[in-house]
Design a protein around this nucleic acid. Sequence first.
DNA 1: CGACACCTTGAAGAGGTTCAAGAAATGTGG
DNA 2: CCACATTTCTTGAACCTCTTCAAGGTGTCG
Lengths: 267, 267
Amino acid sequence: MLDAIKYRGDNASHALAPEAQAPTQAQRMSPQSLKVACSNCNLRELCMPLGLSTDELNRIDDLVALRRKIKRGVALFRNGDTFTSLFAIRTGVFKTCVATEDGRDQVTGFQMAGEIIGLDGIVNDHHTCDAVALEDAEVCVMPFNRIEELSREVNALQHHVHKIMSREIVREHGVMLLLGSMRAEERLAAFLLNLVQRLHARGFSQSELTLRMTREEIGSYLGMKLETVSRTFSKFVEDGTVEVKQRHIRILNTDALKRIVNPQVCL
Amino acid sequence: MLDAIKYRGDNASHALAPEAQAPTQAQRMSPQSLKVACSNCNLRELCMPLGLSTDELNRIDDLVALRRKIKRGVALFRNGDTFTSLFAIRTGVFKTCVATEDGRDQVTGFQMAGEIIGLDGIVNDHHTCDAVALEDAEVCVMPFNRIEELSREVNALQHHVHKIMSREIVREHGVMLLLGSMRAEERLAAFLLNLVQRLHARGFSQSELTLRMTREEIGSYLGMKLETVSRTFSKFVEDGTVEVKQRHIRILNTDALKRIVNPQVCL
DNA sequence: CGACACCTTGAAGAGGTTCAAGAAATGTGG
DNA sequence: CCACATTTCTTGAACCTCTTCAAGGTGTCG
């Protein structure tokens, strides 16, 4: 499903241990290169189209108006906020969530480096969900009118924007499938496999990960109560499928997880 | 949520009783106007941007390569099919559904006149879901490369495409909320309210509708078994909230349904 | 008119929730 | 740096909603 992204970060530990992160490339460079520049960004392959000419690349650098740092727990945008920009995540993990009028809410996704958030705001010029940083984070702010302008001129960018939105639609189909037809164990197994796969695509381990979200947030995303999440983790531990130390997870048996998600095919 | 569309069809009964439908405008017109033309289409306000110049309108007419009739039960496209075009529904209702490898499937939506399907195919040039007609239907086929071409030149079209995709993302957020945090009664009530609202936006009754899908399909969409759908309908009937005669539904107490969906706010 | 798909209803059972209590980790202020 | 408050996580027990299995009814179409 997810494109096979070959990404080698210069500091592959940053998302697992961001607090211990070395200075980023931009921070280390000379003043003039402090200018925001997609063409230099080590996440380029994740959020920008491939195969651009140098001219096109230079123009795309103008897409990012500024970078913004978001402290853990703070919202990048909230339901009702005026929509102006899309955001490309540079570091950190976000959750997005929607709410009913009577206060229940639902996490609709967890987003990490290279992913784009804010697409929900385009329809009505207002955001319809909250995006909250689950750890200190940094995003590139891309004013949407600039995106539209530039994508009229750079075909690859235009198509890239369409693909990003389509990918989000397809991702949500997957979540609907999960919420509509899977049982607790299957949901959590699918969740873990998805997370670890995305982290792996970013240069991290295939078997170890640190959750950036609470059991309650996982539960909200997966449509189950936090107690059920906890119990299901415990069951996986009993079965010897994973090791759980609070938020640190080590997957001991990937195949077992896959079998849980897809009983028929894998058995 | 949904735009307040003021649409007056010339034959307001067609979606409720399509088999008794009078000839469409195009069918009645002289040969030269048989050419597919958005500028003439009585659904234009639903699927095209507003406020175009006549020049722009004429160019948009070229978007639709052809119209295609789909018999009830037949797929417009299937998971795995090569993606080439988006489809604007002229008449009829479709369901879209995704499937796991081991055969379980999940209805991801029901689409009706003026709505656009096929967006899932953009990311990987292949469709990832099936779109099946629930009754005899007709769609406008819009090759996606033409859409991209033209939307580089017509800003309103470009923005319209973005809005359509964003709207779909927001809609799916709503479904996730439903699947993740509502109970059976709430889901079915929300489903009925949504359906009747969309039908009303198309010129139909606010209180009566004919379901085009089976209990099983409703159940799949809402993440519940067909028996539970049936039982929940029966409960609504007992409570005097709706009248159910097979697939014909009459809503007797809209407020009661709203209260079921939003207990706190409405009580 | 008979076959088939679809819908309804009942009874038993499973899976997940709710409520409750305690343990572990994390953050804060002195 | 430690004590305390707070948040987060785990586990148990009772309960409830929805599912499963089963049977019969209704409607539709060739």
